[in-house]
Design a protein around this nucleic acid. Structure first.
Lengths: 331, 331
DNA sequence: CTGAAAGCGCTTACAG
DNA sequence: CTGAAAGCGCTTACAG
């Protein structure tokens, strides 16, 4: 029963030094105006409250889990993490990072690991949730925000946009711009496919569809970069293609690059459209059209919802933040 | 003293159901072969161990803090986070995210927040540490790895590379390539300045230095993108510049883009050199030269050091992982 | 407003 | 190998 571990500096050390009781120290730490005596003792001892103990005792972990897809080349951008982390830390919470997207089995283990910390809220990016995962999340009863996607049956709150609508909008815009032979380059990952699918469907309805999908390459993208180049060239070489919709900004960057390498003018001969929040990419890289989603707005809105719920609000926000098509003339 | 809060499912619920004592449940959870009866009860009840309690009791939080710079456009890449998070979770740890780089005051608050979770190790990216922060970290006595930079006086472990050497190497390479009038575009952030400084010094020694720094713009980069464009054009317009070293990949992307917009051929008239680990950028975007650092190697090595120390090793790795200059002919 | 006691859900060291 | 008790460092509800 005796512990050998050297106790760090605890509330019990601070209390006598501040000539108050331990309770007062605890109170001071969570009160608006910290007692001066406590503050001094704290500084002198270098005391840092133990939030494991605090969380256990109060059932408030002050932890928010951010579950983001593993695939770095996904829709999820660093700026979103930042907005999220910044806002949360200002509200007194810390971010527990969870990388999802390996396998269904791992999703369950990930969730176990995350829930074992008793987070007070969860931010989910994308729809990388297996049914089991969704089911478990639904039951735990803490605020959950899903972002970057739409669904009819959200777990709790939802701040996203419909990927299919993007596919449709891009197809529409291309046709309106006089594009005759559009093609599609998409990640071979079903999570990214709703926009491309709708893109294709719309074009078929408009009788512009051809079977110009170039899937497969992106899956190997991370290991063998050549794969990407090859697939892109396969598309770009087909002389009759005059526009390419890419399921992500990064793919679009690759396509533009590959086209230039082969002396194909962008956007004169081929218009390229990416999709995402890659700020500098949308700003400087893409030709003709970029589907741009204001990541900050998604991030900020999602976080605001979480915080309001943590503060007692009962509102269950379900927002379609929409998207915008951004055109760039030059690279 | 009575708590009103509904207790979640705890070890105490699992024990009778598994017809063992609470201790056995705890043991089973941390033992190699989990008792079948316990496993069943766990599954049936949906029990998830409370790591707040576990950590408090065992003084093992199983938490690792990752402190990364706020600036997304920094040297730090998403791939590093992934390698880190993956490896750590396989070793049974979770990642607590800490974004640094606001102000010195905030660094202290950040550290308080981080330490209040009692992490068992810390990964620091870059040298964004104030003296106070370094001092505090030095004292807490947990394994700490600094990455992405070199210093003569590391806090604990170090897996990085010398930024100044990169500046020197780039200058050397440019001169060897026949560059006559090199210029420099760097972030106005002292943390990114060691490579540029050495670049400049080397050129001056070689009598090629001119005052072509174009600082200032990147600081405002995030708010007003035009600023970036303006600064770049200021550099690019100066007709006699034939090479530009940019302190980051993203700056380089901007410079290339701006040059093209103005009809200046890259790399024919201006060679552009970035710096970083931005995979696709190095691969597809930059002209002439990219300083490329193998982020995976840094990340993986750093993490391995941490894990070994957590497993009892006393070795204090201090490694210079080096860097490589990568040349690209085409955009 | 201040403080003593009980409790948060685990793990540890020890006895059986 | 199993289990009862004590303790990890806080917070809560209550009494003074």
């Amino acid at each position: 029963m005796k512990r050998t571990a050297p106790k760090g500096i605890t509330i019990t050390d601070v209390a006598p030094k501040a000539r108050v009781s331990a309770i007062t120290v605890s109170l001071a730490f969570n009160a608006p105006q910290t007692l001066a005596r406590v503050r001094e003792a704290v500084a002198e001892l270098g005391y840092v409250p133990n939030r494991l103990a605090g969380g256990l005792s109060s059932s408030k972990s002050r932890l928010i889990a951010a579950i983001v897809p593993t695939v770095a080349h996904s829709l999820f951008s660093t700026s979103s993490v930042q907005v999220f982390s910044d806002t949360m830390s200002r509200a007194g919470y810390q971010v527990l990072l969870g990388l999802s997207g390996y396998s269904d089995e791992n999703e369950d283990l990930l969730l176990d690991a995350v829930l074992s910390r008793r987070p007070e809220g969860v931010l989910l990016t994308g729809v990388a949730n297996t049914p089991t995962l969704r089911g478990r999340l639904r039951k735990i009863g803490i605020p959950i925000v899903e972002t970057w996607d739409m669904t009819d049956d959200p777990i709790d709150m939802l701040v996203g946009f419909a990927h299919e609508k993007i596919g449709e909008a891009v197809a529409h815009r291309m046709i309106a711009s006089g594009v005759k032979r559009p093609a599609l380059v998409s990640a071979n990952d079903q999570r990214a496919l709703s926009a491309p699918a709708r893109f294709h469907r719309y074009l078929r309805a408009a009788r512009r569809a051809r079977d110009r999908r170039c899937p497969g390459a992106p899956a190997k993208f991370r290991r063998r970069r050549q794969g990407r180049g090859r697939a892109h060239s396969r598309c770009a070489r087909q002389g009759d293609v005059d526009a390419i919709f890419c399921s992500s900004d990064l793919l679009a960057l690759g396509v533009v690059s590959e086209a230039r390498k082969r002396g194909i003018d962008v956007p004169e001969r081929i218009a390229v459209c990416g999709f995402g929040d890659l700020d500098f990419a949308a700003d400087t890289m893409l030709a003709l059209t970029t589907v741009r989603v204001d990541g900050k707005r998604i991030g900020a809105t999602g976080v605001r919802c979480l915080i309001e719920r943590l503060n007692g609000s009962t509102e269950r926000v379900r927002a379609d933040v929409g998207f915008e098509l951004v055109e760039r003339e030059t690279l």
